[in-house]
Nucleic acid binder design. Structure first.
Length: 199
DNA sequence: CTACAGATGGCCT
DNA sequence: GGCCATCTGTAGG
């Protein structure tokens, strides 16, 4: 089942936690690529010094954060890599959940092709935000698309028949030392005991 | 195994 | 001009 629009219209910390264990499904050339989300981070907009939308900053890049929950926000980082976010909350709050890592489930052959490196170790496909974008062939053209829309090439699905009692840990977010007093907030969530988390 | 420098360009001041 | 929600190759223990 595709998660509906309402799923994203809640407090961002809750959505970040609830996204752990869900399936991210990418359709490309009739092939289905499926991964299980194992690591996320919450970015709380106006009041969060680590957020691109701190103080409600609105630019050509960040405008997608002001769309409805379930909208895709992808940005270029370090000139070469992409990072995936899912917008949450209401259109008045530019919040999002950053997807940091996942476990490859289906379409592994295709993911290996999209990553340029020769990968032997499965977790090297998706154990980082930009590795994930490479494996799923995601880029800025996905900006503004809706992950609750069945016609999208990128959707998020609930995981029925998968163990429901996930143990989820919290920690500070990664690589946001510039965020001063917000850098120690425990807004990163990850599936405990998963080898597929980032390092 | 860990440590670190370099890649590379859009974004924002 | 400086920074950046990253990754990789290489150097060294």
């Amino acid at each position: 089942m595709i998660l509906n629009k309402k799923f994203y219209r809640h407090k961002t910390l809750r959505v970040a936690k609830n996204l752990i264990g869900k399936y991210l499904v990418r359709e490309i050339d009739g092939k289905k690529l499926r991964v299980k989300i194992v690591e996320t981070e919450a970015y709380l907009g106006k009041s969060d010094k680590a957020s691109h939308a701190f103080k409600n900053k609105r630019t050509d890049r960040t405008k997608y954060l002001y769309r409805c929950g379930g909208t895709v926000y992808i940005y270029l980082i370090y000139g070469i890599y992409y990072c995936l976010n899912i917008v949450t909350s209401s259109v008045y709050k530019p919040h999002s959940v950053f997807i940091r890592a996942a476990e490859p489930i289906e379409g592994i052959k295709e993911m290996k092709q999209f990553r340029k490196k020769n990968i032997n170790d499965l977790k090297e496909l998706t154990n980082g935000p930009s590795k994930l974008c490479q494996s799923l062939k995601l880029d800025k053209t996905f900006n503004g698309k809706k992950v609750y829309n069945p016609d999208s090439e990128l959707v998020i699905m609930s995981s029925e028949n998968v163990e429901k009692n996930y143990k989820i840990n919290k920690s500070p977010r990664i690589n946001i030392d510039y965020a001063r007093e917000d850098k120690d907030k425990k807004w990163r969530f990850y599936l405990s005991n998963s080898e597929f988390c980032s390092n």
